[in-house]
């Protein structure tokens, strides 16, 4: 049993190629579409009555909305609310992909570095483009905080620039590594169960790794939510830098 087999991308349908690039409908793409379908379906189903007195599902959807709206408002201010659809899309996409990935035998889209790196670079690009569009060269104040003594300035600028450039890296690798490590750990412990069941009298020990797998699954559910939340809140914090570079 190979714990990294679950991250294997298997082509489902060849669509053709542009130059050297082959475009294939893969299992990963299928899970991305599943995520979209779940989001759209749940939202439309929950909001079908659009009633003022919400039902169970509608109040769940509304509380998620309120939760992200509060997060955006708290970390990026009232101005940041124009980025609310973007932050909510990121949160919903990552959360749904993480939770879909927890279902056994499914595929975790967010365990693909290319997916998380694209999302992180998208955030990074929006921060840079919006920052320069909104504040012009004033955006560079971000790297030179006021109040620092003059002789320290070059050092601070270098450190701030480094931490700024590390942001997309840390944002993408954090999500990717959490998902990857969690799923590998799950696969390893589930593999122990399978091995013990197939190992004669040792099968009496099989419930131990099974219990561990269940506990890890609960932990992974927490991590799945937490990583989506961390991605969203860090996006808000970075957008706040673009909105108010003079901190």
């Amino acid at each position: 049993m190979n714990p990294i087999e679950q991250f294997e991308i298997s082509p489902l349908k060849e669509l053709g190629s542009i130059g050297a690039y082959h475009f294939i409908f893969t299992n990963s793409a299928a899970y991305m579409f599943l995520c979209v379908a779940i989001l759209v379906g749940v939202t439309l189903y929950a909001m079908r009555g659009n009633s003022l007195v919400p039902g169970r599902l509608q109040s769940a959807v509304e509380s998620v909305y309120e939760f992200i709206a509060d997060t955006v408002r708290q970390s990026a201010g009232e101005e940041g609310m124009k980025f609310f659809p973007f932050v909510f899309s990121l949160f919903a996409f990552i959360l749904l992909c993480n939770f879909i990935g927890l279902v056994p035998y499914s595929f975790t889209v967010t365990s693909q570095i290319i997916v998380t790196a694209s999302l992180a670079l998208l955030v990074f690009a929006i921060v840079i483009i919006y920052g320069f569009w909104r504040h012009g060269l004033g955006f560079l104040h971000l790297f030179a905080p006021s109040g620092a003594p003059g002789w320290l300035m070059p050092l601070i600028v270098v450190i701030e620039l480094m931490s700024f450039l590390l942001r997309p890296l840390s944002l993408s690798v954090r999500l990717f590594a959490n998902m990857l490590a969690g799923h590998i750990a799950l696969a390893v412990f589930a593999g122990f169960v399978a091995t013990l069941v197939g190992a004669g009298v040792w099968f009496v020990l099989a419930p131990l790794p099974l219990a561990m797998t269940i506990a890890l699954l609960a932990l992974e559910a927490l991590v799945a939510f937490l990583q989506a939340y961390v991605f969203a809140i860090l996006t808000c914090i970075y957008l706040n830098d673009a909105l108010h570079p003079h901190h």
């Binding site: 893969t26 793409a29 659809p85 973007f86 899309s89």
Partner: peptide
């Protein structure tokens, strides 16, 4: 698989963004 992943990510994330900004925010908000 990077090119196809990027393509499908762009399509699906774009769809989610459109849905959230055009439908979700208006209806829920």
């Amino acid at each position: 698989h990077f090119p196809s992943q990027l393509l499908w990510l762009a399509i699906t994330f774009g769809a989610i963004y459109l849905f959230v900004s055009k439908v979700f925010v208006r209806r829920v908000g």
